[in-house]
Nucleic acid binder design. Sequence first.
DNA 1: TATGAATGAGGTTTCATTCAT
DNA 2: GATGAATGAAACCTCATTCAT
Lengths: 210, 210, 210, 210
Amino acid sequence: MTEDNNSCQTRHRLLESACRIFAEKGFHKATIVEICGEAEANVALVNYHFGSKRKLYDKAWRHAFTQAQACFPLDSGLTEKATGEERLRVFIFSFLNRLLDKGSAGYFARMMNREMAEPTPSFPAIHEEALVPTRRYLCGVLRGLLGAEVAEEEVFCCCYSVISQCVFLLHHLPMREKVLCKESEMYEKIDTLGEYLTRFCLGGIQAVRK
Amino acid sequence: MTEDNNSCQTRHRLLESACRIFAEKGFHKATIVEICGEAEANVALVNYHFGSKRKLYDKAWRHAFTQAQACFPLDSGLTEKATGEERLRVFIFSFLNRLLDKGSAGYFARMMNREMAEPTPSFPAIHEEALVPTRRYLCGVLRGLLGAEVAEEEVFCCCYSVISQCVFLLHHLPMREKVLCKESEMYEKIDTLGEYLTRFCLGGIQAVRK
Amino acid sequence: MTEDNNSCQTRHRLLESACRIFAEKGFHKATIVEICGEAEANVALVNYHFGSKRKLYDKAWRHAFTQAQACFPLDSGLTEKATGEERLRVFIFSFLNRLLDKGSAGYFARMMNREMAEPTPSFPAIHEEALVPTRRYLCGVLRGLLGAEVAEEEVFCCCYSVISQCVFLLHHLPMREKVLCKESEMYEKIDTLGEYLTRFCLGGIQAVRK
Amino acid sequence: MTEDNNSCQTRHRLLESACRIFAEKGFHKATIVEICGEAEANVALVNYHFGSKRKLYDKAWRHAFTQAQACFPLDSGLTEKATGEERLRVFIFSFLNRLLDKGSAGYFARMMNREMAEPTPSFPAIHEEALVPTRRYLCGVLRGLLGAEVAEEEVFCCCYSVISQCVFLLHHLPMREKVLCKESEMYEKIDTLGEYLTRFCLGGIQAVRK
DNA sequence: TATGAATGAGGTTTCATTCAT
DNA sequence: GATGAATGAAACCTCATTCAT
C-alpha cells in the first residue's frame, strides 16, 4: 500500500475499475477504453500511470489479492488450540467467502478463474505470490489431519480435492448466471454449503488415511 | 448429424480444424484465419459454410462432444449387475480420460474448460445438451450409493464434488504447462489418480450418508 | 518480379505509393494512412498484402532498387574495350542520374539517404543486397585506374571518395529545396557536374597512385 | 548567448541532455520524456523554459555548434604565413575531428547528419548561421590554391568535394555500427584518413586547375 | 520555478465479415 | 463450392502539450 500511495485519486479510481472489469471480463476482453470510461479518465492515463494494460493488470491482481486476504483470512478466528477439523472448516469457509463475494473481496478469485483457463503472461508471478502460499497453508492443515505417515503426494492430492470443490463453485458462477439453474440455489447459502464440504472432505480424508 | 454430411471435404476439414483450435485457444483467441490456414481453406469459407464464427463454434462443440462420448462412454464395460462403487469408478475413469485425452476425444473438455471461465453465447445450449445429461447420469449412480432417504439436494452436491475434482485437473493443465509444478507429476498417471479419486469420493459419500 | 506478380492492381498501387512516400519522408515519418490514401486503398490492406509497415518497406526498397538499376545501369553503353577513365565517367554519370532523378528511378537513392542517417532494421539487408555490389563494381573500376600495386585499403578509400562526392548532392537536395541557394544551380546540369567530378576524381586518383 | 545565462541549473541540464539525445537520435525520434529523464527534470519544464520541443532544438543546435567551434577551430594553429596546402590540411583535420568526436564537440555534426537527410523547420537558420560561414572559410582557402583565374563556380564545387568526403564518414557511422564493415577499420585512425583526404583533394584541385 | 496529472490527436495492427467473380 | 481482395470497427500505445497548484 505504501508504493501504491493513493496520493492520486484518478490513479486509484483506475485501479479499482481495473479490478472490477478484469474480474468481470478477464484480461483479454477487458478494454482500456472501458476501464477508463468507468473511472472517468482519459485513455492515455492508463499508460501514464501504469505503463501498459499488462502492467495495470499486474497491479490489479495484487490489489485484489490483498483485499481478499484482508477480508477473509484463511485462519480467521482460530486459536492455537484449534483442532485440525476446525482449521479445515475455517479454511473452507474463508475460501468460499473469497470465491463467492460479489464485491471487491471476490475480484481476485474471479480473475484466477480466467487465469486458470487462459493464463496470461502474469500467471507465473500470480502462482508464486498468491497460489503457492495458499496451497502451502492448506497442506499444513491437511498434514495435521492425515498424520505423519501419509506420503507428501497424498497430502497434495487432498489439497487439490478440497480446493477443487470450492473453486468449482466459482467456476460455476457463469453457468448459474446464464442458465438460472434453480436446483443450485442452495449454493447461495454459504453456511449450508460449507458444512457439506467440510463433511465430505473429512470423509474423503478419512478414507485416504485408511 | 445428417446435415453434417461429409459430401464436402473442405467443410469437414474446417470443422476438424475448428475443434482443434477452439480447444487449444478458446473461442475468442482462435481466429478464422488460423482455422482456415490449418484446413488449407479460404477464409471466406467459414462464413460460406457455417454463417459465422459463432455458428462454426456451435457445430464444433457438438462435433467434439460426439467424439468424446464415442471414445469414452460413461458406463463403459459395465454390466447390469455392476455395484454402485463399480459404476462410480468407471464414471471417474471415463471422465478423466475425456479430460486428459490429448487428441480429438479431449477437445470437448478443453472447450468446456474455457466455456466455464468465459462463457460464450453458446453456453446455454451446451449446458442443456451436454452437461445436464452427464450430470443426470452421475446423479443416478450416486443415488444408488447414497440410498433413497438422502435428499435430492445432497445427491446433487455429491455430484458436483465428484465432477469438480475431476475437472480441476484440466483446469490445472495450463498451470502445469506454464509453471512446471513437479509435485503434480503423479497426475499424469490416470490410473493412480482415478484410484485416489474413487477412494476419496467414496469416503466423502460415506460421510454424507452418515 | 515474378513473385510480385501484378495480378492485383491495388497491391501494385500500394507498392508504388509506398516507394514514393518512403522516398519523400523516410520510413518513420511516412504513415500507412498516407500511403493508402494515395493508393486509394483501405488502411488494412497494407497488412493484408504485406503483413506490416516494415515488410512493405522491404518490398518497397527492393522495388525501387530494381527500378534504379534498370533505368541507369552502372556500365551503360560500355564496350569491353573501354578504358578505365571511360568506365569511371560512366559510373559517375549513372550514379548521378540515379541520385538526381525526380521520378521512380530516384526513389531508391532518396531512401538510402535516410537509411544512412537513420538506419531502419532493414538496413543490413539493404547493405548486403544493394550497397555492397555497387561498391564492389566501383572498386573494380578503380583498381584498373590505380594499378595492381596499390593496397586494397586505398582502393577502398578512393571508392568512398567517388561515392561520397556524388551522394553529397543528394544529401544536399533538401538544403537546396529549403534554402534556394542560387549558387548551386549548376548542380542541376548533370553534364557539367559529371565532367567536373570525373576530372576531380581522376586528379585525386592520380595523386593517390603517386 | 547572454540569454542562455546559466542562472538556472535545470534549464542548463535540459540543454545538455537535449544536445546529447538530439545528436544520438535525431529530432523526431528524440522524445521530451527521454530528454527530461536524463536531465532529471519534469516533462513540463521543456515547454516552460523553451516553449516547445522545436524551440529547444533551436537552442540545442546552436549550443552544440558553439562547442564544436570552440574545441576544433578551422584554422587551429595556423600562422599568417601558412601555405594554402597547410591551411587545407588543417581544415580537413579540424573538420574530421568535429565529425568523429564522440563527446559534446561531435554533437553538432551528428545533428547535421540527420538534418541533411531529414531537415527540420530549423534548417534554414542552421544553414545561414553555421553552414554558410564554414563554407565561406573553406572557399577562401581553396581560392588560394586554385588561383585567381578559376571561376567562382569551380571553387564552389571543390568546396563541396572536400566537405562531402569528410561528411560521408559520419554519414557512414551508423552503417559501420550496424554492419561492422571490417574493411573500413582504418577510418578510425583520423591521422591516416586526414592524410589520405588531403592528398586526394590536392590531386583533385590540381586537376581542376589544369 | 517546478511538479504531477491530464489531454487529444495520431499511429499500427488485428480480425470478422463481405463482395465480386 | 471456392477464391482473393477489400472493408471498417476497434484495440493498444505514443507523445507533445497544457493545466492547476
